[in-house]
């Protein structure tokens, strides 16, 4: 990811800033500039998600790309935030801890880094919400 592309995504990655269509009530993460339901009738505003949600489905990744190799095996999941939007995210827990329906909450972590001398990408992951 280029430095400029990461920089543009800081608000959504650090603070879970998405969008909500005031016409139909749908919420989106990552943020959309256009409501796919209301089309031209859409009225999108930024919202900050609470960071609480639950696991809809998950996968245990044993064969990881280079930047995540040291973290394997790790849990990759689709979660549903309590406001309604769905997102793909890491769940920081042991692979045998995760289950469908598990409540999760957001934490601030390193997502990856561009090698030892490049930019560090911070953002949101999720942990079990006990």
């Amino acid at each position: 990811m280029t430095v400029a592309r990461f920089w543009r995504r800081i608000p959504q990655r650090y603070n879970l800033i998405g969008t909500k269509c005031e016409t139909c009530g749908h919420v989106f993460f990552p943020p959309r500039a256009f409501c796919p339901h209301c089309r031209r009738g859409g009225d999108l505003h930024e919202i900050q998600f609470s960071g609480k949600g639950k696991v809809l489905t998950f996968s245990i990744v044993h064969s990881a790309s280079d930047q995540y190799a040291e973290q394997k095996p790790y849990v990759l999941a689709i979660i549903e935030l309590e406001e309604g939007a769905r997102m793909t995210t890491h769940i920081v827990c042991e692979p045998d801890e995760v289950y469908i329906g598990m409540p999760v909450k957001s934490v601030f972590r390193v997502l990856d880094a561009e090698g030892a001398d490049g930019v560090i990408h911070y953002g949101t992951k999720f942990v079990p919400d006990e």
Binding site: E70, Q71, H90, V92, V107, F108, R109, V110, L111, I120, Y122, K125
Partner: peptide
Amino acid sequence: PDYDENTATFAVEAAR
């Protein structure tokens, strides 16, 4: 620390 934690993530979690 976990693999994906460092001083900045600690500082953010503590401030939050």
